[in-house]
């Protein structure tokens, strides 16, 4: 590993819980490699964020977070982009070889990143989200031009065909109404599971080529975390099973 180029999209409840963890880990990573951590968010810290997010002043979330963390983590090249991710700027932010933490609250943005990252030879997208007491983290890995896991949209039709707007498409009134009640503990669990994935990428040999899972689900009320394999989707015509009746069945895929 020669360097780490990390992008965190969205510094809301999940992103703001995630970034300090990433910083603390990367500050002490061994062997030492250059670490670039780019935070991107067009939203502002406001008083009503205080129940889930930690900030020392009002202002743009990405800028305020970098301002707070940069003095503590001098080995990391921290930078902030005070804009929402959108088709106009995604080219400048997500590059070949990046590890992208997608901490956004809308499927339009998720689809935008999912579609954009298909073109890279090597990329990792770690996408997390939650509802009140449950949530998930999905991993999309491309290596040497091939999908190692299924993409976000291949598994989740709500991402493949998103309803609603991305933040960059909303006016101020729509943005103000977009937030909804959340539980900080659920945000924090998503961030912890994203860190679990990141640790596997950095420390577990061959995880990027042979991941043991492609998605993690948690449910706080059940007290469970479940991992699921996400094989890359082979896009061929469906075999008509009636026409195959009487012929030998294909080999069963294990988990």
């Amino acid at each position: 590993m020669k360097e780490l180029n990390i992008v965190v999209v969205g510094i809301g409840g999940v992103g703001s819980a995630l970034v300090p963890k990433l910083c603390r880990y990367c500050q002490h990573i061994k062997p030492q490699v250059p670490v670039s951590l780019v935070l991107i968010d067009g939203d502002l810290y406001e008083q009503n964020n205080a129940n889930r997010q930690s900030f020392h002043r009002f202002g743009n979330k990405a800028e305020v977070t970098v301002e707070a963390l940069a003095p503590q983590f001098d080995r990391i090249q921290l930078s902030a982009i005070a804009e929402f991710l959108k088709p106009d700027n995604i080219d400048f932010i997500i590059a070949e070889g990046s590890i992208v933490f997608l901490c956004v609250d809308n499927n339009t943005s998720r689809k935008m990143v999912d579609d954009f990252t298909h073109k890279f030879k090597n990329i990792v997208v770690i996408c997390g989200g939650n509802d009140m007491t449950d949530g998930n983290v999905q991993i999309y890995i491309r290596r040497k031009g091939k999908d190692i896991t299924a993409s976000l949209a291949d598994i989740h039709p709500e991402i493949a065909s998103p309803q609603g707007k991305a933040p960059y498409q909303m006016n101020c009134e729509e943005l103000a109404m977009a937030s909804s009640p959340q539980l900080f503990f659920a945000n924090d669990l998503v961030s912890a599971l994203m860190c679990l994935v990141f640790y596997q990428i950095i420390e577990v040999k061959d995880f990027l080529d042979k991941p043991r899972f492609g998605e993690l689900y948690f449910d706080m009320l059940l007290g469970r975390v479940e991992s699921v394999v996400r094989n890359p989707v082979v896009k061929v015509a469906q075999v008509d099973r009636k026409k195959c009746k009487g012929k030998s069945k294909p080999a069963k895929k294990g988990r």
């Binding site: 956004v104 609250d105 499927n107 998720r110 996408c127 939650n130 989740h156 069963k252």
Partner: peptide, 25 residues
């Protein structure tokens, strides 16, 4: 992915109903 809901399950199968991604962050 299995689109045929009439498909008969066999011993040892793993059947997942994909839960939607979390909406919030």
């Amino acid at each position: 992915e299995e689109n045929d809901e009439s498909h008969i399950l066999e011993d040892g199968d793993n059947l997942e109903f994909v839960k939607k991604s979390g909406d919030k962050a």
